[in-house]
Simulated assay, not measured.
Amino acid sequence: MRALPTTPEVAGVTYDVHALGHEAQPLVVIDNIVDDPEALIALAEAGPPFVAQPTDYYPGIRKPISNTYSDILLQKVEPVLRDVFGLEHQYQPQVRLSAFSLTTTQPQKLRPIQCVPHIDNHAPNQFAVVHYLCQEKFGGTSFYRHRSTGYETITAERLEHYFKVLKQEVMADDSAGGDYINGNTRLFERIARIKVRFNRALIYRSCSLHSGDISAAVGLSSDPRVGRLTLNSFIESNPA
Rank of each mutant, 00 (worst) to 15 (best):
R158W: 05
L20V: 11
I214F: 09
G183D: 04
G12K: 01
L27P: 13
A240P: 00
E88N: 14
V77G: 05
I181K: 03
P54M: 12
M1E: 04
N232M: 09
D36G: 01
L110E: 00
N67I: 12
P37H: 05
F85C: 08
D173V: 09
R147F: 10
T155S: 15
G219A: 13
L229F: 01
D120Y: 01
S233A: 13
E9M: 12
D120C: 01
K109R: 13
L87R: 09
P117G: 03
G139W: 02
Y15Q: 00
D56P: 06
V130R: 05
V17T: 13
V170W: 06
G86L: 01
H89R: 15
S208Q: 02
M1R: 08
K167P: 14
E189R: 07
L73C: 11
H122R: 15
Y15A: 00
E157V: 12
T14I: 01
G12L: 05
K109C: 09
E9Q: 10
T103E: 06
V80G: 07
H210M: 04
V196D: 11
P79Q: 01
A128F: 03
H146D: 13
V28F: 01
V84D: 03
V34Y: 05
P124A: 10
P79G: 00
N199F: 00
V129N: 05
L20R: 09
S70M: 03
T155E: 13
T230W: 07
L220T: 03
T155K: 11
G212M: 02
I61N: 00
Y69F: 05
L97W: 14
T153N: 06
T6S: 15
E136W: 08
A46R: 11
T14L: 02
N238M: 10
V95S: 05
D223T: 02
S142E: 11
E38D: 13
F100K: 01
I61E: 03
S233D: 08
R225Y: 00
A99R: 13
D71R: 15
L231W: 02
P59Q: 12
L102N: 02
D56W: 13
T7A: 07
V17S: 08
S233M: 08
R200K: 07
I119Y: 00
P37A: 02
R225N: 00
H131L: 01
V226F: 04
Q168Y: 13
V34E: 06
A156S: 12
S70N: 04
T155V: 08
V29C: 02
L4H: 09
H146I: 11
